[in-house]
Structure formats: structure tokens, C-alpha cells
Simulated assay, not measured.
Amino acid sequence: MPNRLIKAVGVLLAVITAVAGCGGGATTEQTSAPRSARPPAAEPAPAGAPTVAPIGMVVPIPGGPEGIVVGRSGTAAIAVRNPPGVALVDSTTGVVRQTVQMGGAARHLSLAGVDGPVLVPLESSDELVEVSLADGNVVSRTGGVGRQPHDAVRTSNGTVVVTNEMGGGVVFVRDGAVVGSLPAGPPQPGGAAAVGKYAAVADVQGNGVWVYDGSTREQVAQGPVGTKLTHAVALSDDLVAFADTDGGAVLIERITPQISELARVESPGKPYGLAHDPDRRRLFVTLTATNQLQVIDVADPATPRIAGTVPTVQQPNSVAVEPRSGAVLITGSSPNGSLQIITEDLLPR
């Protein structure tokens, strides 16, 4: 039996044993134990105040900024948590153009296309909202997408896969309506990445990755990866980078849909936020324990090269790339909230 399959069987047996131990006769519908009874999930390090001044420009973003995406037009969308909303920001100046109020708070954001709409999974109201980057209009609002939906990505066939963090598994959405769900699988699904028609999902409780086919709405692969994962970002139609937050590394995996490791990059400092610049073939990783951004050259994904690190704002939980200029935008979640804009010329090469 191949070594990876042996590990996968071991992980599955461990999950079955843990579920059985949480209550007699538990079914797959009951994989979501109370938060207090769950194994601890991978989390970013609580960062102290920076000891080195962040490079680039820093502007205040009040309200506890978290997830960030930037469209081809240069408009950035930032999830803010208090009050809950999505701020539309000029990615060059950091000026907030508009704030779209939401009925719940989001942590992750993703783009359904190169210039939106923005997929906004609202953790506190169990909804998926699509927001236009151009004018802030709500394109669609879908309820019943699980308990505390954490991330959402659109696969190439148009199906949106939403990770059901507190319910386990995923929910499938098409044209603003729920069309299916799979409650089995990852006990606490977190970050997701779309690779062609597949969505690769990380389990933040352990080291599992689950792969779903958006066209058939089926689970098509699962396997152990790293120590404890959080975020994921697609590098191509068959490659995904995962932040192994507890393992201090970034792992590049090939999804065919079977999962195979292509490369590992050491990223000490609780790696968390991820962003990919396909035009300049760079991968960006926030190191939350040290208030740094790691820059990785992925021109050859099989042999990634660390280009260097740069100092960031406090608690750099999320990062995005402005696709036209190559500027990098980082949200600082502590203490009052900030946005750091690093122009391409300031990045290590």
C-alpha cells in the first residue's frame, strides 16, 4: 500500500474514533461538535507591535479589517467586522470609496472573476453574498450555506463551493441558490482554492485536504497534507499552495484531483495569509508571529525560491496583489486596523 494511502487511512480512522468518542452513535451529520469540545484549530499568532517600521504606505482601515481581494480595475474589497461590511478601496491610495453594510461579518473574500463580483461568506449570519466591485451593489444573497461559512470559491463550471466551518463539509451554490451539500469530510473546513472544476479545501483542525468536483458536486479525493492548515490559494489549474500554519511551512500540492506534494517552503512565524501574482510568478505569505511578509519566487513551482521578507503592519492576517502593477496590499487586524500598500519596486527579487 502506498505510504500516502496508509497515512490517509490513519487520518480517517482517527477522525472516526474521535467522532465516536464525542457521543455514542454519532453520524456524519453530527461531526460538528461544540467548539469547546473540538480539537484546537490552527490560528494566526497574536502578533505584538512591530519592532521594524512597515515599508510602503500605511493607511487606517477602522472596523477590524480581515480578508482582502483586488480586481483588475484596481478596486480592492476589504472585509471589516465592526460594524460588519465590505469596504471598497482604491488600491493605489488606500482611500475608502464606499462601505457596503452587511448583515454579518466575513473573514475570507474571493473573486468570482478577474474583476468580481466578490464572494462574501458571512460567518455570523450564515449567508453568501456577491458584491459588485464596480458600484457596491449586492448581486445575490444566498442563505442557508452552513454554520459559520468560512470561505467560498467559484469553480470553472460556475459552481460556488462554500466551506461549512462549524457544520463540517461544504455547500454548493449556483445562480444564488443552494443546490447541494456534503456534510461529511473535513470536520472544520477552512480555506479553499479553486483549481479548474475542483475546489481544494483545508481542514483547520488537522492535516487533511479534501477535493470536490464543482460540476458533479461530489468529493473526489482526500489526503493528509502538512501539520495544520489554514489558507489556500491556486497557483494554476492544477496547483494549490497551502499555509501550514502550525507546521511553519507553505506546501505546494498538485490536484489531479488526487493530491500529491510538489514542494515545501519553510515559512517560520505562523504563515497564514496567501496571495499569488501569476504575471510575476510570486507567492506572498504573511508571517503573523513576526509581522513580516515572505516573498517566494514560483517561476518553477517544483523548486520555489525564497526571495526575502519585508516588515509589515501589526497582525498581517490577509494579503492580496493588485494585478496590473504588482503592488501588494496587506490588512493589519490590530490594534485599530490598517492597510499597507507595498509598490512592486519595494519588493525583494
Rank of each mutant, 00 (worst) to 15 (best):
residue 287 L to M: 09
residue 282 R to G: 05
residue 159 T to F: 00
residue 340 Q to P: 08
residue 12 L to K: 09
residue 251 L to T: 08
residue 248 G to E: 14
residue 203 D to H: 09
residue 304 P to A: 15
residue 33 A to N: 07
residue 29 E to D: 12
residue 51 T to K: 12
residue 279 D to K: 11
residue 283 L to M: 01
residue 80 V to P: 01
residue 318 S to N: 11
residue 56 G to N: 08
residue 229 L to T: 00
residue 46 P to G: 03
residue 38 R to F: 05
residue 116 G to R: 10
residue 226 G to Q: 08
residue 252 I to F: 02
residue 283 L to F: 02
residue 120 V to E: 05
residue 262 L to C: 01
residue 231 H to Q: 14
residue 325 S to D: 05
residue 349 R to A: 14
residue 108 H to Y: 13
residue 105 A to W: 10
residue 120 V to F: 10
residue 2 P to M: 08
residue 337 G to F: 05
residue 344 E to K: 15
residue 348 P to Q: 04
residue 38 R to N: 06
residue 337 G to M: 02
residue 225 V to S: 04
residue 226 G to C: 08
residue 237 D to Y: 02
residue 322 E to W: 03
residue 262 L to I: 03
residue 264 R to Y: 12
residue 224 P to H: 06
residue 49 A to K: 09
residue 146 G to Q: 06
residue 30 Q to P: 02
residue 174 R to Q: 15
residue 105 A to K: 10
residue 314 Q to F: 04
residue 229 L to H: 01
residue 19 V to C: 06
residue 256 T to W: 00
residue 329 L to V: 02
residue 307 A to P: 07
residue 334 S to W: 11
residue 158 G to K: 01
residue 257 P to Y: 00
residue 90 D to L: 03
residue 109 L to R: 04
residue 161 V to E: 02
residue 165 E to F: 13
residue 207 N to C: 09
residue 270 K to H: 14
residue 273 G to C: 06
residue 256 T to L: 03
residue 173 V to D: 00
residue 287 L to K: 07
residue 308 G to I: 07
residue 209 V to F: 03
residue 214 G to C: 04
residue 177 A to E: 10
residue 257 P to E: 01
residue 342 I to H: 01
residue 310 V to F: 11
residue 149 P to V: 09
residue 342 I to M: 03
residue 308 G to M: 05
residue 99 T to S: 06
residue 292 Q to G: 08
residue 33 A to W: 12
residue 189 P to S: 09
residue 191 G to P: 05
residue 299 A to P: 08
residue 317 N to S: 15
residue 30 Q to A: 12
residue 38 R to T: 06
residue 205 Q to M: 15
residue 333 S to N: 15
residue 297 D to E: 06
residue 53 A to E: 12
residue 337 G to P: 04
residue 221 A to C: 03
residue 103 G to D: 13
residue 289 A to I: 10
residue 96 V to G: 06
residue 225 V to H: 07
residue 9 V to D: 05
residue 115 D to A: 10
residue 22 C to W: 09
residue 207 N to T: 07
residue 247 G to C: 13
residue 49 A to I: 13
residue 128 L to V: 04
residue 66 E to M: 13
residue 185 G to F: 02
residue 169 G to Y: 01
residue 301 P to G: 14
residue 55 I to E: 01
residue 66 E to K: 13
residue 304 P to R: 14
